[in-house]
């Protein structure tokens, strides 16, 4: 028979109060090394008290109190390593490229859908120029029919910065929508990718028919490769979520979706800096004749190749993991 509850509380309460005070001190970083080992001992005792309370004092406030105390201490003691700048570095050197490689199939599928849509759009408008009425957005159609490319037009009327913000927000919208529609088992993502491909293809074809085809090619040369890659990666992340709903493998459907969603969110957030960078290029470098087209093409080719080389090969074999500098060489991991 367990001891009476009041006696139990009276006997153990001083230690619990001490543990609580120490937790407050720990948060403000005022504990010495000896105090930390006391904290450890107090936590183990409190855990034992919790086990006693679970069997002998179920349904009481003492149990609730101990639950909370142990949870707080557990969280303070078993805390993951500080997630500040170091983790950003690790994320880009290691995690992000790995995640992209793991979901590469889905990115390829997204690229395939976008490309298929693009071909459909091109062919449709070349065979039936009237199709442009349906497939190309109205305001672009007007500009193209006047023999301008909308980018030249936009540059005349608005500052490049404004272009960058507008285009950037548009990129973000396409990427977020194709990502978020992953929760419709990927159907929405497939639709968004296809329809974006079709409208890109149709616009390019309409430009060629209006005699400004080369302008659109030089406009997209600098940012196109990276931008399309990012859309495919984000779309691939969306499809990755959808895949878990269709084929959860050996896990329950809920668990699979949760795991895939966490990977997909990390991929999407990892893309954010590149989205900003490419928005700036698109606003300042791409429009108008300020930069000669061979330079734009070279920049586009180089940035696209560099992105994929990094995604497919990082981390390099010589990189010894995030804590290489502080660990003895025998404990280093790759």
């Amino acid at each position: 028979m367990a001891e009476p509850l009041p006696a139990f509380v009276a006997r153990r309460r001083p230690d619990w109060t001490r543990l609580e005070t120490m937790l407050t001190q720990l948060r403000s970083g005022k504990l010495t090394l000896t105090e930390v080992s006391t904290l450890d001992a107090l936590y183990r005792q409190a855990s034992a008290d919790l086990a006693v309370a679970q069997s002998a004092y179920a349904g009481t406030d003492v149990l609730r109190f101990l639950n909370q105390l142990c949870a707080r201490t557990y969280a303070a003691i078993y805390r993951p390593r500080g997630d500040r700048l170091e983790s950003v570095r690790t994320f880009y050197l290691q995690t992000f490229p790995r995640l992209v490689r793991e979901t590469l199939q889905m990115t390829q599928l997204a690229a395939g859908l976008l490309f298929f849509g693009l071909v459909v759009g091109l062919v449709t408008v070349f065979l039936h120029p009237d199709g442009a009425v349906v497939l190309v957005p109205a305001q672009l159609r007007q500009i193209i029919s006047r023999g301008e490319v909308w980018t030249d037009f936009a540059l005349n009327n608005a500052t490049p910065t404004e272009m960058a913000v507008t285009i950037f927000l548009n990129n973000v919208r396409v990427m977020i929508v194709s990502f978020a529609f992953g929760v419709t088992a990927g159907i929405g993502t497939v639709f968004v990718l296809l329809s974006n491909g079709v409208s890109i293809g149709a616009t390019v074809a309409a430009c060629f028919q209006a005699g400004v085809g080369l302008n659109i090619l030089t406009f997209t040369a600098a940012h196109g490769p990276v931008e399309l890659s990012l859309i495919c990666i984000a779309g691939g992340a969306g499809l990755h979520i959808g895949r878990a709903m269709i084929d959860p493998g050996e896990r329950s459907r809920g668990t699979a979706v949760r795991e895939h969603a966490q990977v997909a969110v990390q991929i999407l957030l990892g893309c954010v800096p590149f989205m900003i960078a490419i928005g700036i290029v698109e606003g300042f470098v791409s429009p108008g004749p300020f930069f000669p087209w061979p330079l734009k093409a070279a920049a586009g080719l180089f940035s696209g190749l560099a992105l994929w080389r990094w995604l497919l090969t990082s981390p390099s074999p010589s990189w010894r993991g995030p804590y290489a500098a502080v660990l003895p060489s025998s404990e280093r991991t790759i």
Partner: peptide
């Protein structure tokens, strides 16, 4: 927890 006690948070 590693202390082999399940903590139950409301």
């Amino acid at each position: 927890t590693p202390e082999r006690v399940a903590v139950d948070l409301p």
